[in-house]
């Protein structure tokens, strides 16, 4: 991991809620694995105080793309960034998705949970895996390219939750691995379904972060340990965990 200043090369508005921020980062682009994230802030701007954890959406040679959803002050500020503005970033951080080959892989995402799976899909395909992607969101704005789409309000794709699509497809076809990222409640439901179908699933978790490097113990997630549990850090031990290890109700 490094703490460096990088320039914005492009800020692409996807719709009113989402945008894609591309940075030029030759110093670190080669060392990124899918599933990792960065702690980012606007250089010289100390409000909000804490950096914001943002996943790697895509790595293209020396450039790194972040897909961001506006939800509060910090992400709103990022949405106004323009070419040549400077970001202060720490990363790459956290563990990464295990990269199999010649497997049948299912991706499931909800809303901004789409972001970390995008680069993963690229890597899975170049590693000779078959990939099927189910994506869902509240409404049309939350929908991005995938094989099956669901919206809560029915404005795009099928009306309903991704869990419907997940059950349906698992009944029809055998998958070796599932990767999942989205709201906690969705990941919890998906992990129950994966368990029912005896399919190994990895989830990418979120938790409020301060340091992002494993020193403050702020981003705790309850993980099974023998008959009990312990707290691990999402930023260093995660963000990727085997869904069977996570205690969803803690």
């Amino acid at each position: 991991m490094k703490n460096i200043l990088v320039k914005i090369i492009e800020n692409i508005k996807l719709n009113d809620d989402y945008f894609l921020l591309w940075i030029h980062a030759p110093e670190i682009s080669k060392s990124i694995s899918s599933g990792q994230f960065f702690e980012i802030k606007i250089a010289g701007n100390n409000f909000p105080l804490l950096r914001k954890p943002i996943s790697v959406f895509e790595v293209k040679n020396e450039n790194v793309g972040f897909m961001i959803k506006k939800i509060g002050r910090g992400t709103e500020n990022f949405s106004h960034l323009k070419k040549n503005d400077v970001l202060d970033i720490i990363g790459p951080l956290g563990n990464s998705f295990e990269l199999p080959s010649q497997k049948e892989v299912l991706l499931i995402s909800g809303g901004i949970g789409y972001a970390p799976l995008h680069n993963l899909k690229k890597e899975l395909l170049s590693n000779n895996n078959n990939v099927t992607w189910i994506h869902g969101g509240r409404s049309t704005n939350d929908i991005f390219s995938s094989d099956f789409t669901f919206t809560d309000d029915g404005s795009s794709g099928q009306k309903g939750f991704v869990t419907i699509g997940m059950e349906e497809i698992l009944l029809k076809k055998k998958f070796d691995l599932i990767y999942c990222c989205g709201p906690k409640i969705m990941m919890k439901k998906c992990s129950e379904i994966a368990k029912k179908f005896h399919t190994k699933m990895f989830v990418s978790l979120e938790e409020y972060m301060a340091c992002g490097i494993g020193v403050c113990h702020g981003c705790a997630v309850a993980i099974k340990k023998n008959d009990s549990f312990t707290y691990k850090t999402v930023c260093k031990d995660g963000p990727i965990f085997n869904s069977n290890e996570v205690i969803w109700n803690e």
Binding site: L49, C216, C219, V221
Partner: peptide, 22 residues
């Protein structure tokens, strides 16, 4: 093992933490 999450929250120019001496 520390306190259950959420353990952090940013307030105006400050930070709340409840790590529980993990």
């Amino acid at each position: 093992i520390g306190n259950p999450p959420p353990r952090l929250y940013e307030t105006s120019n400050g930070l709340l933490n409840s790590i529980g001496l993990q």
